[in-house]
Each structure stands twice: as C-alpha cells, then as structure tokens.
C-alpha cells in the first residue's frame, strides 16, 4: 500500500477531533437538525450560529468558521438544550470542547471569555480555591475598566456586607494538587 505523505486531511478530521475531545459519547452524529437546541437556548439570540447550525457546520468540516464563532463563548452552560434534544446529543459538553479547541488554535475573536477563564484557573491552580476579588478586579481592569465604576456600588456593597474576602485561601494539599494537574496536562498532550 502506498503511504501518502504527509497524510492528507480527510473531510472528517474536524468532526473526529471534536468527538474525540469530548468526554464520554458526544452523540454528535445523531443530530437530526431539528433545531430544538437553538430554540431553547437563552443566549441563542446573541450567538452567531445556533447550536444546530454549529453541528451542521462541524459535519461540513468548517473548522475555522466554527472555531471563530462566538457560539461556544455565549453558551452559559445551562444544559437546557441537552435536556430537550430528542437525540440526546451532549450539546453542552460539545460547546466546552469547541472552547478548548478555539483556545488551542487561537481562533477565538472576543478575548473576554477565555481570559476570564484563564484568570480564574490561575487562582485555582496556585491556591486550590477560587478568589472572587482577585478574579473580578483583574478581569475588569483588563477588559472593562469603565465597568468597574458601573458595578462599584455592588462591589462595595459586597464588601460592606462581609461577602468579599480580601485574601485568597490556599489548600494544605496544594503541592499534591499541582502535581495532579501537571500530570493531567502531560497526559492530555500525549494523547491529543
């Protein structure tokens, strides 16, 4: 058998990758394009493509258009589509997969959401706990410095009511957690 080199991309590479990178079964191929997901989605109106369209686009191998789309970033992870999908497609999990693929390929267009996630996980990876004050101030200053003023009332209200911690908390087992996360990242890189 002749070994084509480099192996040419088959039309299904993108579809396969989305499925492979979704934990468990994505059931993406079961989609019957009924549109129930988009019709149920609370942020459907703000998405460039509804989940239904996104799934059609994945099957049409429109990698770049899909990964550049704002759709996964406007998914609020409410699982409403998933409860209603007649084909039990794991829609929300697929949205998360698309976010990860967009970040890896640096194809996302609006940086606010991925940056928010990055700042959030940075606290978690170093302390083992989330830190709201650090998260909100870092994120706001970077993406919406004027937004700080708009929600200053709220922030101060939270402080006044004792609902905002001033310092992050670190878990005892942070070294163990760091080792676990480092190992997980290694493993994922090997199997990607």
């Amino acid at each position: 058998m002749v070994n084509a080199s480099p192996p040419s991309l088959t039309p299904f590479d993108f579809l396969d990758e989305v499925q492979a990178r979704t934990p468990g079964q994505s059931r993406l191929l079961m989609c019957i394009q009924c549109g129930t997901c988009g019709g149920s989605c609370p942020s459907g109106a703000d998405m460039e493509h509804t989940p239904r369209s996104i799934f059609a686009m994945i099957r049409a191998d429109m990698r770049e258009e899909v990964l550049r789309s704002n759709t996964p970033w406007y998914c609020v992870s409410c699982y409403y589509c998933t409860v209603r999908c007649p084909q039990d497609v794991h829609i929300t999990d697929i949205m998360y997969t698309l976010k990860r693929m967009a970040v890896d390929a640096r194809l996302y267009e609006e940086p606010a959401a991925p940056d928010f996630s990055k700042v959030f996980i940075n606290w978690v990876e170093n302390y083992g706990r989330a830190f709201e004050l650090g998260l909100m101030s870092q994120h706001m200053l970077r993406h919406n410095p004027f937004g700080v003023l708009k929600i200053a009332d709220m922030g101060l209200g939270m402080v006044t009511k004792g609902r905002m911690a001033f310092t992050p908390k670190r878990i005892r087992g942070i070294q163990g957690l760091k080792a676990i996360i480092a190992r997980a990242k290694e493993l994922e890189a090997v199997h990607a």
Binding site: V103, A113, F116, F120, I121, A184
Partner: peptide, 11 residues
C-alpha cells in the same frame, strides 16, 4: 466552576 473545563479537559 464553568471555567476550568473551558480550557482544560483532563486537568
């Protein structure tokens, strides 16, 4: 929360 899974699967 919904953040870690947006960037890392296995971790």
């Amino acid at each position: 929360a919904t953040e870690y899974i947006s960037l890392q699967m296995l971790a």
